[in-house]
């Protein structure tokens, strides 16, 4: 045991650490009790040993529920993913809704290649405060243009034949798209259409009770309404109370449009303007301006419009000269 005396500090350290055997510990204890130097060293060393103390962790409840905490994180992730999905669905829904309405048009005719979805409300024609869906519904009711009606009108009989040719039918013989050329071109488009555009732009989307613009005999007058313009395209077919359903702009000269149609059925290119889509409030571009943009930008010198009737037949207009 003498080696323990050589280094009192180390020995007492080992003693307090509990590293000595029972015999060695008993020897050290005797030395501490009997020897003042050992006793002082023991007291000094003993202070350096920390006494146990209890410090409670305040947030133990959070640790005890790890599942809930991680579940919450997982829920946040699911919530974010679901929100994103809903947002995408919403945007997609808006997009497909427009496509569906356009499809209604395309299903009823074979010119499905180049549609210009426009939504013309009654305000565009100055007819009152009906929304677009009302317009679509009322087109059939108010336009009331049927084959029987047209056939009863001998003046329109040749046009009816052309209109039937324009429209997709089950009869393949009627699927040809003849370019309709007429000797007389209405004076309505002899003027620069921008004049009409400016005039139509002045229509307010909120002008539900706006009175009709004053009629003029010459639709090329600056204050001519779109009703008058269309009346010039379809003489005798457009009445004031009528609602325009669809208008097809067709090249009468065979000039190609700058945009390519996938499978043009003839040299006459077609543009579809679905009035059910044109909303003045959202797109403050009147239908005529749309027509003009499509034709003028494409350097289309002459177009022909076709008016769709209740029984899905089409009434072609006279050729409209845009070579101004």
């Amino acid at each position: 045991m003498k080696h323990l005396d050589k280094d009192i500090d180390w020995t007492i350290f080992e003693f307090l650490e509990g590293n000595l055997s029972s015999e060695e510990a008993q020897y050290v204890q005797e030395q501490i009790d009997s020897n003042e130097e050992w006793n002082k060293a023991h007291t000094r060393w003993k202070v350096s040993f920390l006494e146990s103390e209890h410090i409670p962790y305040p947030n133990i409840s959070e640790l005890a529920q790890p599942k809930a905490r991680f579940k919450f994180t997982r829920n946040i992730q699911w919530f974010a993913a679901a929100s994103l999905l809903i947002a995408i669905s919403w945007f997609w829904g808006i997009h497909t809704q427009k496509i569906d309405s356009s499809d209604r048009v395309s299903k009823s005719n074979s010119f499905q290649k180049h549609k210009v979805p426009l939504h013309v409300t009654h305000d565009d024609y100055g007819f009152g405060s009906h929304n677009s869906s009302d317009t679509t519904r009322q087109v059939a009711a108010t336009l009331n243009l049927t084959h029987s009606h047209l056939k009863s009108n001998p003046r329109r009989a040749p046009q009816m034949a052309s209109a039937t040719a324009l429209m997709p039918t089950s009869n393949p013989k009627k699927r040809a798209l003849p370019v309709i050329r007429r000797p007389s071109i209405p004076n309505a488009l002899a003027v620069h259409p921008s004049a009409n555009v400016a005039r139509l732009d002045s229509f307010s989307p909120t002008s539900a009770v706006r009175p009709l613009p004053p009629k003029t005999k010459n639709p090329s007058m600056p204050n001519a309404s779109i009703f008058e313009l269309l009346s010039s395209f379809f003489p005798g077919e457009i009445r004031e109370e009528a609602r325009l359903s669809w208008v097809v702009i067709q090249s009468s000269s065979g000039t190609e449009l700058p945009y390519t149609l996938a499978a043009p059925r003839s040299s006459a290119e077609s543009i579809y303007i679905d009035t059910g889509y044109f909303q003045l409030a959202e797109t403050p571009v009147p239908i005529w301006q749309q027509i003009w943009q499509r034709t003028k930008k494409g350097q289309l010198p002459a177009v022909q419009l076709a008016l769709k009737t209740q029984d899905n037949s089409w009434i072609p207009s006279m050729n409209v000269n845009l070579s101004y």
Binding site: E53, H54, I55, P56, Y57, I60, L63, A64
Partner: peptide, 20 residues
Amino acid sequence: QEEYQQIVNDCADALYRFSL
């Protein structure tokens, strides 16, 4: 899960004291 809960109960205070 049960063992984890036991560890939390046994060691949270000690770990907090050690850290503090």
